[in-house]
Computed example of a mutant assay.
Amino acid sequence: MSIALALLALALSCIGILWIVGVWISQRIHSVWSRPTGGLDPITGPKDRMAIYDTGGPFIPMPEALKTHEEMVAWMTKELPKLTAEAGKP
């Protein structure tokens, strides 16, 4: 009985390894085919992203002096509503 269990465990292990290899190969093939064919992405940083995708709408940048979560939340709850109200005025 123990030999049968050993052979069953060996067979299941081989099937599992073959399944893992198949999944790995299919993921590799998919990643190769899904790569963009264009050139390099011109966007390298957040300032470049704003310059390229700026729609001309109101954009209020967060001050760079804010470092902690509490400072950012305080700025968003106190100063940001004032700035958005001023941006809406003609």
Rank of each mutant, 00 (worst) to 15 (best):
D48Y: 00
P63W: 10
G16M: 08
G57L: 15
A85F: 08
A11F: 14
P58N: 15
V32G: 02
E86D: 04
V23T: 04
R35G: 04
T37V: 07
P36W: 13
P46E: 08
K67E: 09
G88K: 13
I43M: 06
P58Y: 09
D54G: 06
A4K: 03
R28S: 09
L66Y: 05
C14H: 00
D41A: 08
P42L: 03
K47H: 09
Y53G: 10
S34L: 08
I3T: 07
C14P: 00
Q27T: 02
T84F: 07
G56I: 12
A4L: 13
G16C: 10
T84N: 09
G22N: 12
I15H: 02
G57D: 07
F59P: 00
R35H: 00
I25A: 10
W75R: 12
L12R: 05
I15K: 04
A51C: 02
V23M: 13
L12V: 10
P90M: 06
G39K: 00
T84G: 05
C14E: 06
G38E: 09
W19L: 15
K67L: 12
R49F: 13
W33D: 03
L18M: 12
A11K: 00
M62H: 07
G88R: 13
D48L: 06
P63V: 08
M72S: 12
A87W: 06
A6C: 05
A51Y: 01
T55D: 15
L18R: 06
W24R: 12
A9R: 04
T37Y: 11
I25C: 07
V21D: 09
R49N: 04
W33L: 15
K78L: 07
W19K: 15
A6L: 15
M62D: 04
I15M: 11
S2D: 11
P90H: 03
W75Y: 13
E71Q: 15
A11I: 11
A51N: 02
E70S: 14
V73N: 06
V23H: 09
W75F: 11
I20V: 14
S13L: 11
I25E: 03
A74F: 02
V32A: 09
W24H: 10
